[in-house]
Design a protein around this nucleic acid. Structure first.
Lengths: 359, 359
DNA sequence: ATGAAAGCGCTAACAG
DNA sequence: CTGTTAGCGCTTTCAT
């Protein structure tokens, strides 16, 4: 039989006190005598009382729920970021309402709408598309709705953001390729990633900067020419395959993420190119599988869970600021957190081919 | 400036009608004249009115939120199931409150507690541990709280469940290994998977059944002997490495999931064993990366998103049944959905080694 | 065809 | 130290 939910009044009745007293007893505000408090707690336990957060939320105008909008969960990068968000949310006693945009700006808009109706206290969004996203995100920002972006900032949108230093990430990748003597570098990215403008572009720019410093030709961008396909492994595979079939050459490859790198590795192998002998490959993310690919993948590590955690921290701060404007005290109005990536060298680069440097 | 949320009463005021009328106009219950209805809708739009679902939920005793508890998101299997859940939830106008148990039964219990306080209408749980989980899940079941399990049923717990036919999945894997002439089969699983009793055990049992039918020796179970480590790739790698270092032999390997298979592939390669020449490898799940590993992974496909979708469907049904008991009409009280797996043959098995069959 | 009023479960200002 | 009371925003019965 469905057990009826026991509320504060039933506890009050059983304890022979008022609902108010129960409330103060449960929240230990020191307004009740220790005796009644114990009695109330005892009865609450007996009755298996649980607060009804909807009711509390309605009254307090605060649901203790954070909304999260992500492009989807199949890229492990996102999955890890969401885990980080979940951990931080649980620690700060928040629930987590999750919605996916699946790469579509209007789905994202609908998700934001829906989450707002559910009265989330704030939103963490990994935007899907700078143009489409910026419309509704800008609307949120304008009414000072607590909002934090993860992964990348939308140009011209002043919102707290936590992201990784993509320029530097690209730079260390490019520098490494140059150092080990690679001359013809290809940068693989899909259109979705190009749309996320700052991300792919910065990684590419960082890479090119390093190449230039080393006197190596700029990277050839492969991928945006062809249609986007899922999963991303397949995209990486097809993009590289087409490039090679069209007679393209390369001795170094830098992929915008590890999943695409995985597909790229496969394409290189299928075309008879050996990694790292013929081609050095670098990914981005350092996902769980990177060390276990064959060859293991050299990649630019980023702290994925940490991105999620920091996003929640910024968001909680935003929420407080929205509630008690005095809280802003001193610290800058909009915080940007930029985490540092680092290169993890594994087999796919074949450090030993570095001998080429001496030729 | 923070925009104050506009409610039904403000719309009413502006339209010169009562809140009741606004309500009926918005919900198109045909109780208002078309004229007033249009006017109200117009004003609602102008004022950018959005219903407050917390308030509605409180009144209606129904939050339109589903709770989901999963072990974590880093295994892409889970990520895909959650995507399926998210899609189905969005389609049925439900929000999705997500919590992770991280493999710990008490964390799971706390998550369930928290979700109930948030007044979710029902729960989808991927249990973490049959012993630990069964305690609080049984409690839910006893009070007829809408609950659906995904992935595996807890023995003796009568709750709707959607899972894949693991016995059959194991069977087709084992049969394939036998058919291509493999004789010394190893089954790799970690302790966490063994705890999820029916899953790993059924996959193993199905495999052994096929081996027996083919007159091949039962599979050696590798993994549970050593401590669990994350990520699972690493576990697969270490488990297989230890087995080989201890002088273990094999010519066929069946892993409890693709991620562990990925680590196993790597371990085999690092020990100089070639796949598929020396060893045939089969995984379970058919995750995105399976076709892009080198060699590409033969694996037992399961419809991951579909599991999530079906779970939501069962749950929505449970919720309706709990609300209007008359709804149960005819159909069995507890539904079990069992989806069919299928073998996807790729390079890691080397069908051509099937020649061995003729020796 | 429309409105008044009660109430979902909890909180907090205000009395005593 | 404890209780009374008035809502939070929406739904729904009952009047008009």
């Amino acid at each position: 039989m469905r057990k009826r939910r026991v509320g504060i009044v039933e506890v009050a009745a059983r304890a022979g006190v008022s609902a108010t007293t129960v409330h103060f007893a449960l929240h230990n505000t020191g307004r009740t005598s220790e005796a009644t408090r114990q009695k109330v707690l005892q009865i609450a336990r007996e009755l298996d009382y649980h607060p009804h957060r909807l009711a509390r939320g309605l009254r307090a105008q605060r649901s203790q729920i954070l909304g999260v909008v992500v492009p989807g969960l199949r890229n492990p990068w996102v999955a890890h970021v969401v885990e980080g968000i979940e951990m931080a949310a649980a620690e700060t006693d928040h629930g987590l309402l999750l919605a996916c945009s699946y790469g579509d700006a209007s789905t994202e808009g609908a998700a934001v709408e829906m989450l707002r109706e559910q009265a989330v206290d704030g939103l963490v969004v990994i935007p899907t598309d700078p143009l489409g996203s910026s419309v509704h995100l800008r609307a949120l920002a304008e009414e000072a709705y607590p909002l934090v972006l993860a992964d990348w900032a939308i140009p011209g949108l002043e919102v707290p953001t936590v992201s990784v230093d993509n320029l530097k990430g690209g730079y260390v990748a490019g520098r490494h390729l140059a150092r080990i003597g690679r001359k013809r570098i290809v940068f693989v990215t899909n259109v979705s990633w190009m749309r996320r403008w700052p991300v792919a572009e910065e990684r590419l720019r960082g890479c090119n900067q390093a190449l230039e410093e080393a006197g190596v030709a700029q990277a050839t961008v492969v991928g945006p020419q062809i249609a986007d396909v899922l999963p991303e492994e397949r995209f990486g595979f097809e993009a590289v395959n087409r490039y090679l079939e069209a007679g393209g050459e390369l001795d170094g490859l830098f992929a915008v993420n590890d999943v695409i790198a995985c597909g790229a590795l496969r394409a290189l192998a299928s075309q008879g190119l050996r990694v790292p002998r013929d081609v050095s490959v670098i990914g981005f993310d350092d996902q769980d599988l990177a060390p276990y690919l064959s060859p293991s993948l050299t990649t630019v590590h980023q702290p994925m869970r940490e991105i999620g955690r920091q996003a929640v921290q910024l968001l909680v701060r935003e929420i407080r600021m929205a509630e008690e404007p005095s809280f802003s005290r001193g610290s800058p109005r909009v915080q940007q957190v930029r985490l540092q990536p680092s290169l993890v060298v594994r087999e796919s680069c074949g450090e030993r081919t570095g001998l080429l440097t001496f030729i």
